[in-house]
């Protein structure tokens, strides 16, 4: 994980230096390294991180990526537009710098919310209860849930998930479930109110 943090900061430094010194190779190398870091994070690091560190890792990469894109748009794209606008006076003026900052801020807020929501979902390894069930042959099977599983699950069994050994969802058909509860209506014995 430390390598990913170091690589991300190094990539951000390359992008900023490439924009500041106007070196195209440094900018492209920084963006490429940032892409490699993101791939490493998603394919390698997230599997080894706890939930809190996972949130921090994704937030860190999001901040670095947004900062890099902000600097790129703020300083490099404006210069390109101004250079392109010089020979032709009829082209519209470049957008105000404050607008790009507001866009970057809104994007940052949206990324933080999305990452927090996505990291909130618990993975299979973090489930509190697991009940292995023997499967003797492939195909359609009829299994009976143990009482301990029914005791640990919610009354409507809404939190039950069926997974294979490879943590893949498998289709199920419920039979013999609890009958739906009848609506309870208290009998009205008289028109008055008992005290």
């Amino acid at each position: 994980m430390s390598y990913s943090i170091g690589w991300g900061l190094f990539a951000l430094t390359l992008v900023v230096a490439g924009i500041w010194k106007r070196i195209r190779a440094a900018r492209y190398a920084g963006i490429a390294l940032l892409g490699v870091t993101v791939v490493k994070l998603f394919t390698h690091d997230l599997a080894n991180l706890g939930q809190l560190y996972r949130i921090g890792a994704l937030l860190g990469v999001a901040v670095v990526a947004i900062a890099a894109s902000f600097f790129y748009q703020r300083f490099f794209a404006d210069d390109s537009r101004q250079a392109a606008a010089k020979p032709d006076a009829k082209t519209p003026p470049p957008s105000q710098p404050g607008m790009s900052f507001m866009k970057a801020r809104d994007t940052l807020v949206a990324a933080v919310v999305l990452l927090a929501l996505s990291a909130r979902a618990a993975t299979f390894s973090e489930w509190q209860w697991r009940q292995p069930l023997p499967v003797s042959s492939p195909g359609l099977l009829k299994l009976s849930l143990p009482e301990s599983t029914l005791d640990a699950a919610r009354p409507d069994l809404g939190d039950l998930r069926w997974l294979t050994l490879l943590a893949m969802r498998c289709p199920i058909f419920w039979t013999g479930l609890f009958p739906p509860a009848k609506p309870f209506k208290p009998p009205i014995l008289s028109s008055g109110v008992e005290r």
């Binding site: 994980m1 430390s2 390598y3 170091g6 690589w7 190094f10 390698h44 080894n48 991180l49 706890g50 939930q51 809190l52 560190y53």
Partner: peptide, 29 residues
């Protein structure tokens, strides 16, 4: 140098050679 310094920081003291461990495990809550 950045990668070497990260590996050096996480290599146990007294070990003769560097250990590049790319799969550090951090378990939180």
């Amino acid at each position: 140098l950045l990668n070497i310094e990260i590996a050096d920081y996480f290599t146990p003291p007294g070990q003769a050679a560097l250990t590049f461990e790319f799969s550090g495990i951090l378990r939180g809550t």
